[in-house]
Design a protein around this nucleic acid. Structure first.
Lengths: 204, 204
DNA sequence: CGTTGAAGTCAACAGCCGTTGAACTCCGGC
DNA sequence: GCCGGAGTTCAACGGCTGTTGACTTCAACG
């Protein structure tokens, strides 16, 4: 569709016509990565699902790793989420952060991205580091810090453990009552836990 | 050492002498499976770590899968754990179940078994089913049922999500404040959450 | 002694992996 | 018309995978 104008000054030859195989590859790859993790999917499987030659993946993305990285690239801006979460009463902080996570996890695209990283993290330390830095350090630690609570890093870790557990239990292990639960019920239940982890007195 | 008596009546030939390579293989394989999951470790890596020829693994165990299955075979009897957990006041039920899990996770051998299954579950649906059936259905559901609480399956799922999250956050993602936390502190914190999931009124 | 069978070794199989490079098609710009 | 480059295809590379079968070694038995 469209794609008839000159894209860059000096270039000649055939312009980026229809075809759209690049997007086909991305759309085929994300669900596959989400259900098998990086190592659980082969380039040939992705190509077959996209109806495309395997070599085309390298033509567009350079490597399997680069394709994966582009697909899971930063689904959100942690600092913005932190700002939004803090932009209201402190009492509903748990609710806002859990709402954000549950909604993201149940979004068709964003959820697949997160699950893909989660599954990959089980076998690849670098993917685990992404999760660790992004959610615990950049997202939850600033929140715990903003509350001026004691031991903010431990509190962030506790919240992370519950949110990661929810993601794993619902989307990886597939525990039925969680899969079938209403979004609002999950939010209400887990918001209370997260709120407690952020404000409750801690032992030790 | 020892191994001088006749082991089985009709057998002749070389008796099971020292060597002990079978155990060497098992001891080398468990930590490897724990840190990479089933697919993240090769037979040749296990053999090298055990100081043994790869073919010897097949001589003793038949297949990589059979080796894995034998290593992670039922680390505990769920029914016994349920009985022990119920053999005291209902108010400390959360504490007992969390104590069991945290202790198991931090045990050098039992912890590696559980983490091996957890990492494998990320890529293999069958391993995920093991976790689902063992922890949620055989362990936590009977407990929730014994409390005569409403929606026992959802309550068991909630507890599972927190316990799986703790295992993932501490042993797979490696979130520092959890790794460094004292066992008793973790128990105190998570016991309260689990207890609430079992007894708290639920929305919906 | 010689026989036996488990323990252990070696080399190889077929199959899949990620990746590469050359070739061909096609079409907009000169 | 010609040309060049993007889109696309094909075949192949080296390397690694789980697994197998034939072979050697050797302590315990009759």
């Amino acid at each position: 569709m469209s794609a008839s104008g000159t894209r860059a000054g000096g270039r000649t030859g055939r312009r980026a016509g229809p075809g759209g195989s690049r997007d086909d590859i991305a759309e085929a790859a994300l669900p596959l990565f989400a259900s098998g993790g990086f190592d659980g999917v082969t380039v040939r499987e992705i190509a077959a699902e996209a109806g495309v030659d395997p070599a085309l993946i390298y033509h567009f993305y350079g490597s399997k790793r680069a394709l994966f990285d582009e697909l899971i690239a930063l689904p959100f801006d942690p600092e913005e989420v932190v700002r939004n979460a803090l932009a209201g009463g402190v009492d509903e902080l748990g609710t806002r952060i859990v709402t954000f996570m549950v909604t993201q996890l149940r979004d068709p695209v964003l959820g697949e991205r997160t699950v893909a990283v989660l599954r990959t993290a089980a076998a690849q330390p670098e993917a685990a580091a992404v999760l660790r830095e992004l959610y615990s350090r950049r997202l939850l630690e600033p929140l715990a810090h903003a509350l001026r609570a004691d031991r903010p890093r431990l509190r962030a870790a506790l919240c992370s453990s519950q949110l990661i557990g929810l993601a794993m239990a619902e989307h990886v292990i597939g525990i039925e009552p969680l899969v079938d639960a209403a979004t609002e019920d999950l939010i209400a239940i887990y918001a209370a836990t997260v709120q407690r982890y952020l404000t409750e007195p801690l032992p030790g």
